[in-house]
Design a binder for these strands. Structure first.
Length: 485
RNA sequence: GCAGUCAUAGUAUAGCCUGGUUAGUAUUCGGGGUUUCCAACCCUGUGACGCGGGUUCGAAUCCCGCUGACUGCACCA
């Protein structure tokens, strides 16, 4: 389905909706998850924990969202996470200083250069506003981090622009206390904050958003010594080379040099296996190796996991080989030791990062799962049963003749074990349609026969087929059908 | 951030140009009835002019500002 249909579903069924919407001064780029959305998000994260964190014996932490200035001085975000901008004194138009200068003079000044360099060039070349020919004010840095003032003295701190910095600064303690051994994955789910200039398209570009990040610490000398590589060597991945998407096993990718080593290939394989289980149409996915100019300032090798949606290719995961950029910067700035022992060798670990955008992933799952069933005039969210916001609807065929009471009884039997929804009112077909729309994979219906032989019907969402089972079997059937793979 | 288009119930829309009724319709939703296995039907009810200011006797309608949404550009760790 398309963006518009997903948006409509999201608003009508409270998957997500704009934040602070009752006030006129609500800002763009902030959205809330309603009950249905939260339920899918929690299940998605549980799958992520199973398929990545637990499978690879990673450690999960939950760090602060507000972090001190030093963290971002060391990480480079205070210097590099900012664009040089110039503003026209006359008409107020704002330009990227480096881009405008490059456009007019063909001189490339790196965006991280001193602000005076931009001012100097603008004076020398007599660059004026392209719209009104007005003069420019001196260059400023627009930093995409949100500054916060701490305590009565308003001390400088920032909302984290990525969750991973707490993983880096916590690394020495975690490695010691958790008896770490390289390679070691440390994971975190949480919110990050970026002051985007133009947030857009609901969950796809937010100022406050969820990330699920994994930082794998490794010995850079042992990137091809990885026993567990055999677990995924035959997993096929889709990887874009030049303009063509090629399908190959992880082993082939390493052998052909498409992926630089087994270590990176292993995690791209794991990630592929994870996303297959989310129900995203993997034939519309690709790993794309980023060029020099596209990569983040800390990345040595970077692959984006992207999925094609009705509004184009969407980056769901950034996989960056960050080398020892972060640990050495934090070691230098903090004067703490970040080296660890790997058997007899003392190493400053390198980091491979798997940085997942949760909001975008959820959007993509919805878009790829939402189907229009024209024959039966219904919208169906064919989401995997283990990700469905509601597992099962519990319905009475009619309210009278004691069926309502019997239905309540069944609901009470399963309500703490499954996400269940009790519904007595209206036509049975309408109630099935409502459940289809929020992706409930099953509906239990109590009818007159139930009173005679203690059986109910179970209706399946996708093919609308029904079969009759004994109430005593319900729990085991539902447990089996809604279990994680 | 720039430009264009737009903003009316949960959702989708009419009305605006040309100011003046109880803001209409569809759907959804709540209550009741009837029927019973796929959005049927009947009765009934709740529910909206994004925010702020101006013009006017009177503003959903005209004007200004703000905010947001969509599309394109730019940006995107």
């Amino acid at each position: 389905m398309n963006y518009e249909s997903v948006m409509k579903l999201a608003l009508e069924r409270a998957f997500y909706f704009p934040s602070c919407e009752v006030y006129g001064d609500a800002q763009a780029g902030f959205w809330e998850y309603g009950p249905t959305g939260v339920s899918v998000k929690n299940k998605f994260l549980e799958l992520w924990r199973r398929e990545l964190v637990r499978r690879d014996r990673m450690l999960e932490i939950d760090g602060s969202q507000i972090m001190s200035k030093s963290v971002f001085e060391a990480s480079g975000h205070l210097g590099n996470f900012a664009d040089p901008i110039i503003k026209c004194k006359k008409c107020g138009l704002t330009f990227r200083a480096d881009k405008l200068i490059a456009e007019i003079t063909n001189v490339e000044i790196p965006e991280s250069a001193d602000l005076e360099d931009f001012d100097k060039m603008i004076q020398e070349k007599n660059i004026v506003c392209t719209k009104c020919k007005g003069e420019f004010d001196s260059a400023k840095k627009f930093n995409m981090m949100f500054r916060v003032g701490i305590g009565p003295e308003d001390e400088e701190a920032y909302l984290r622009p990525e969750t991973c910095q707490s993983i880096f600064v916590d690394f020495p303690r975690l490695f010691k206390t958790m008896r770490g051994k390289l390679p070691l994955g440390i994971a975190q789910v949480g919110k990050s904050f970026r002051n985007e200039i133009a947030p857009r398209q609901s969950l796809l570009r937010l100022r406050e958003f969820y990330q699920a990040e994994i930082e794998v610490f490794c010995n850079p000398g042992k990137l091809n010594e990885l026993d567990k590589f055999s677990e995924i060597e035959n997993t096929t991945i889709r990887i874009q080379i030049s303009d063509e998407i090629q399908v190959m096993t992880c082993k082939e990718a390493v052998d052909k040099g498409v992926i630089p080593n087994k270590f990176v290939a292993y995690y791209l394989g794991l990630l592929t296996e994870f996303y297959e289980k989310t129900g995203i149409d993997m034939s519309k996915s690709r790993f794309r190796k980023l060029g020099e100019k596209e990569k983040a300032f800390y990345a040595d090798v970077a692959f984006d996991f992207e999925v094609n949606t009705t509004i184009g290719w969407l980056e769901l995961v950034a996989c960056n080989y960050r080398t020892d950029y972060d640990l050495s910067s934090h070691a230098k700035k903090s004067k703490e030791k970040f080296e660890v022992m790997d058997n007899d060798e003392k190493v400053l670990p390198h980091v491979f990062e798997i940085s997942m955008g949760i909001d975008r992933s959820l959007y993509t799952i919805l878009e790829h799962s939402l189907k229009e069933d024209k024959e039966n005039e219904r919208m169906v969210l064919s989401i995997k049963p283990y990700l469905a916001p509601t597992h099962v609807g519990v319905l009475s065929l009619v309210k009278k003749d004691g069926l309502s009471e019997k239905t309540d009884e069944i609901y009470r039997l399963i309500r703490t074990k499954f996400d269940s929804f009790l519904d007595h009112s209206g036509a049975i077909g309408r109630r099935y349609r409502r459940l289809d729309e929020i992706g409930a994979p099953f509906a239990i219906t109590v009818d007159h026969q139930t009173k005679e032989d203690n059986t109910v019907t179970i209706r399946r969402r996708d093919d609308m087929a029904q079969n009759r089972v004994n109430i005593s079997e319900l729990e085991s059937i539902l447990a089996r059908e809604t279990a994680y793979p």
